[in-house]
Each structure stands twice: as structure tokens, then as C-alpha cells.
């Protein structure tokens, strides 16, 4: 069993290396002197200096984060609520709804983008943040729903029953029992939604206005001039900040867990 565990951990290490290898390359090349970021020329910090003054990049990064954050919240609400209701109750036409929910995943982005654009024009919704968020939620929430559904599958029904027997209303039972039980799936769904939203180009192009440009749009636009290392620099700054934030949260949580043990979690199963 120990050997098996070792093997699994080694495999995980390798996969993490695979995931981070390009990121490492990207970080290294953010220090590349060459404007055409293809061949290594020499070390420089110039691109970092430039990123701060590049209003286009900074503003689009802000837009991206904002859109991704709002999208995640809506996707989690729609996806979790939807998955629970579809699991708990027997609705007529449920299978049809299940199928429809996942259509945005298969539809090619350009079609989703164009059709949503037409829709927004028809209902006279002005292009901007709202339209971008709507379209992002549309292709993100199925991911949350699928993750939560998988977690719900085979859930012990006694769980909710027990809470209801103890006199909790279905809402309280959902909030206090089901949501905590689903949390790992909700978290992974949220991560997927956030990531997908942060990375989308085509749907965003069709549904954004000049003021709501996102970072990927900005980056794709720059390919024509050659991908210069300032794009790597801003990615590096962002990744660095994220890792730092995650580690800090981790540390804070550990401390929190020590002082106030296990009100919500933190206990080993």
C-alpha cells in the first residue's frame, strides 16, 4: 500500500511539473530582452517597468478579474442550486432540461458569440459588462452543475432526512447540511468557472464593448505585432500574486484553525 501511495504521489508530482513547465518557460521569457519573444537574447527587467504604464493591459486585466469574479458567483449559484433541485425532485421534462443545460459546452464559441450578440440586439441590451457576464455564465455554469451532480450522485439521503427530522426547514437543511457536503464540488466548479471566464476570447469579442475588453482579447490583438515579453510579464505578476495570495490564505487558515478549532471544518475526516 505504501508503494502504491509513493507511486501515486510521484505521478502527481510529474503531472504538476507538466502543468507548470510552460508557466516556467513563460516566466523565464518575461525577462527576455528580445522584443520578438521567440529567441532568447538576454536578461532585462524592462518589460516589468512597461507593464505598469501600459494602461491597455492593466485595465483589461481589471476587467477580466471583475468579469470572472461575477461570473463565478452566478455560475455557482445557478449550477449548485440547479444540480440540487434536479437531484432532489422529480420534475417533468427533467431529461430535456438536463440536455439543454449542457448545450453551451458543445456549441462552438463563435456560434455562441454570434447568436448571443443577435439576441442582445433583438432585446436591445446594450453591449457591456452585463452582456459579457451573461454570456460567460452561460458557458461556465454547466461545469459547476456537472461537478455538483457528480458529488450528489449516490449521496446518502439519510443526510437531509436527519436534518429534517431534527426540525430543520428544507432551506436550513440545504444551507447547513447539503452545502457543506457539496463544498468540495462547489469549490472545484467555481475554480473551473473562474478559469474558463478568465480565458475566453471569442464569445467575449462578440459580446463586449470598447469599455469591457478583457485581457485575452487584448492579448490576441497583439499577436500581429509579435507577442512581446510584456504579455509574459503581466502573466507572471498575476500568477505570482495568486500563488502568494493562496499561500497566505493557507497560512492564515492554519492559524485560524489552531485558535478556533473546527466550527466549520478543519477537522481530519
Amino acid at each position: 500500500m505504501k508503494a502504491a501511495r509513493r507511486l501515486l504521489e510521484a505521478h502527481t508530482g510529474l503531472v504538476l511539473f507538466f502543468l507548470y513547465a510552460p508557466i516556467l518557460v513563460l516566466v523565464v521569457y518575461s525577462f527576455n530582452e528580445a522584443k520578438l519573444n521567440v529567441v532568447w537574447k538576454g536578461f532585462t527587467l524592462e518589460w516589468y517597468a512597461r507593464v505598469w504604464t501600459d494602461t491597455g493591459l492593466v485595465r483589461s486585466l481589471q476587467n477580466s478579474l471583475m468579469v470572472a469574479a461575477i461570473t463565478t458567483v452566478f455560475s455557482v449559484a445557478l449550477g449548485t442550486g440547479g444540480a440540487w433541485l434536479l437531484f432532489r425532485y422529480r420534475y417533468p421534462g427533467e431529461r430535456l432540461l438536463q440536455t439543454l443545460v449542457f448545450l453551451p459546452m458543445i456549441v462552438p464559441e463563435v456560434i455562441l458569440g454570434v447568436s448571443l450578440l443577435i439576441l442582445f440586439v433583438v432585446v436591445r441590451l446594450e453591449l457591456g459588462f452585463t452582456t459579457v457576464v451573461i454570456s460567460h455564465v452561460t458557458f461556465c455554469f454547466p461545469f459547476v452543475l456537472a461537478a455538483v451532480e457528480a458529488r450528489l450522485a449516490g449521496m446518502d439521503p439519510a443526510l437531509e432526512e436527519a436534518a429534517l427530522d431534527l426540525g430543520a426547514t428544507p432551506f436550513v437543511a440545504f444551507h447547513k447540511v447539503i452545502v457543506p457536503y457539496l463544498m468540495p464540488a462547489i469549490a472545484s466548479g467555481a475554480l473551473m468557472a473562474f478559469t474558463l471566464s478568465l480565458d475566453d476570447v471569442i464569445v467575449t469579442y462578440f459580446t463586449a464593448s470598447a469599455a469591457s475588453r478583457t485581457l485575452p482579447l487584448e492579448m490576441f490583438g497583439r499577436v500581429k505585432k509579435g507577442v512581446d515579453p510584456s504579455l509574459n510579464a503581466i502573466s507572471t505578476v498575476f500568477i505570482g500574486a495568486t500563488i502568494l495570495a493562496v499561500l497566505t490564505t493557507q497560512l492564515l487558515n492554519r492559524r485560524g484553525a489552531l485558535t478556533a478549532p473546527a466550527t466549520q471544518g478543519g477537522e481530519k475526516p
Partner: peptide, 13 residues
């Protein structure tokens, strides 16, 4: 079950 919901994930949300 009550302890499964992970605090960090909640914090993130």
C-alpha cells in the same frame, strides 16, 4: 458530514 465543508473554499467564495 458537518465538518467536511472546507473553510478555505468558503473563504474563497
Amino acid at each position: 458530514v458537518f465538518t467536511i465543508g472546507s473553510a478555505p473554499a468558503r473563504g474563497m467564495l
